[in-house]
Design a protein around this nucleic acid. Structure first.
Lengths: 338, 338
DNA sequence: TTGAAAGCGCTAACAA
DNA sequence: TTGTTAGCGCTTTCAA
């Protein structure tokens, strides 16, 4: 709309050549303090802003990163997105957001399309196979969140540890039979949470009863509830908070008291969980930190591509923290009367 | 990472000039079917993808739009964002997302920064003044969501009508004294919902008791609850569902029964509302449609800049729909015993 | 420390 | 219908 002001306009006003203006902006040390000041004044006066497309054309960098998430409507990913875009902006980097709508098939296409327009991509909780991920990483710089894959840097949560905390809590309350409502089978988190639960229950002499894979949503939890009840477990760990809250809703309508008859544990600690009835015991995953780290990691990689080869040091593991709320309580006393 | 393939590579392989390749892609009708096929084959074989920065440099279009929202963690905006990016992708347009974190001061800076990098901006629920908005619109093509401003196209909800539905519902249940918990004072929605409530209560012979302005969040609702109780109202309309759910939580801990002693109505119908206890009666605002319309409007404006001048026709108004759930019920019978 | 010149990948006049 | 030419706004050699 307004008049586009170019580097030549600035150069003319400052009485220098365009290349000097360019240097004054990108490599200030390489330019005389006096001229630098003159250029700065001209930039100020004209409100000059370098054209990123033109710069990108020559530097090969767009100043943009891509973000691919399974579902923005899931508060966990909304928080992550918020953190990522905030951190990126600090570095004057813009963020393209793409939502796969939990469709694994859409992932590859989106990554492919994005990769042409960005310097690198943050891929959150991808459902793609390791081979596909490797192909993505060959195409562009990729940082994974919530997923580990050989040779690709990323930030993950220590799911095993989180599940151990959950099981320890439940066992301390007297529970010995614990149901597990998994998320999508292709989800790395599902696999590792399942594994962590298996190990922890074994160590602590409890019995784990997996009830299958469900959509990582409120509806998924509703769908799982009746099977959970049928297991006869006195406690259940859900794939995430959304599923746990769905569980809560269905249990309520089935007349099952929580935690009176069944204790429920989620994972994520989305804001909603504190508001649920009863409030949800959960494993709080640091979402902001994950987003921040992912951005820093990606930008570092872009500035120093070699480091990607440096086998290690490019994966961060964050720890979850058990948040005990009203949805877990002592194991119900078995009825002694026949 | 992979070898960048340019239009010249394609041209060489197809045995034509770069401009023919360019035309075959952008203006297919202008090129012979045979050569077009040859070019297509070469593009396919090489996996050519036009460099958007280069194209943008000359066309002046980036193929990108900006989206500015107050808070991605608010499910209402998450839904909107989801809809907008999905619709934009259909048009092969990428979306930059920026979150102001409910900081009105950040708005101008973000819009300013974005406007250099995008073809146009979708501004959701801006808190800026009309003058600031006009300044933004002078700088770049802007479409407003959830806000009306003279001369700037946009999509809004008919807040007056929504509030009328809410009041009619409450009055039918016997309520005559209705509290109103407003959102940020600078919010257009707050103003128009307040206005709608004032009109509707007047028409229907009820009394409206505004209790002030609060943050549009769960915490805002918690903060407002005690003042709502103090009004002696038998029903309350909250700025949005998040506030209503915060209200619900505080009322619960104060031992006030909903809807036994107080009926609660929200606005938005975020997913969480159906899951609340009691489930929240609310005005459902069509979020997807708003996002879709905003994108279509913006892209239409970009394709035909003149239409922006065409005073009218560039504002859409959507209607909300009352969703009755458990949080509203008959007015409590006044205690007859002294 | 600065300027001149070349060119990033693409599109748009203009010729042919 | 196609090719040639110029140039979008910027950075970056290379010379001065």
């Amino acid at each position: 709309m307004s008049v586009p002001v170019t580097i030549r306009d600035v150069a003319r006003l400052a009485g220098v050549s365009p290349s000097t203006v360019s240097r004054a902006i990108s490599l200030p040390e390489m330019v005389n303090a006096t001229t630098r000041a003159r250029v700065a004044a001209a930039v100020e006066q004209l409100g000059y802003e370098p054209n990123r497309a033109a710069r990108g054309l020559i530097t090969g960098r767009t100043g943009t990163i891509g973000l691919v998430v399974p579902d923005l409507a899931n508060p966990f990913f909304a928080s992550l997105t918020k953190a990522i875009q905030a951190r990126a902006r600090r570095h004057d980097v813009a963020v393209f957001v793409a939502d796969t709508d939990e469709d694994p098939g859409a992932e590859a296409g989106l990554v492919r399309a994005l990769s042409k327009q960005v310097d690198g991509i943050v891929l959150c909780s991808p459902r793609a196979s390791d081979d596909d991920l490797a192909a993505f990483a060959a195409d562009t710089t990729v940082v994974l969140v919530n997923r580990a894959a050989a040779g690709i840097p990323g930030v993950t949560y220590d799911n095993e540890d989180g599940m151990r905390q959950a099981v320890a809590h439940l066992v301390a309350l007297g529970h010995r039979r614990i149901a597990w409502v998994g998320g999508p089978a292709s989800s790395w988190s599902t696999q590792h949470r399942g594994l962590g639960l298996r190990n922890a229950t074994e160590e602590l002499h409890a019995v784990l009863v997996p009830v299958g894979n469900f959509a990582p949503t409120y509806e998924g939890g509703m769908a799982a509830a009746d099977q959970v009840i049928a297991t006869g477990a006195t406690a259940v760990v859900a794939y995430n908070d959304l599923v746990a809250i769905g569980l809560l809703a269905r249990l309520h309508s089935r007349g099952i008291s929580v935690p009176g008859e069944l204790s429920v544990v989620g994972v994520d600690d989305i804001a909603m969980s504190g508001m649920a009835h009863p409030a949800l015991t959960t494993i709080r995953l640091p979402k902001q930190e994950a987003g921040w780290i992912a951005v820093e990691l990606l930008l570092a990689l872009l500035d120093n591509p070699d480091s990607q080869q440096g086998a290690s040091g490019t994966r961060s593991e964050l720890h979850g923290e058990l948040i005990v709320r009203a949805s877990t309580g002592p194991v119900p006393v078995p009825d002694r009367q026949p």
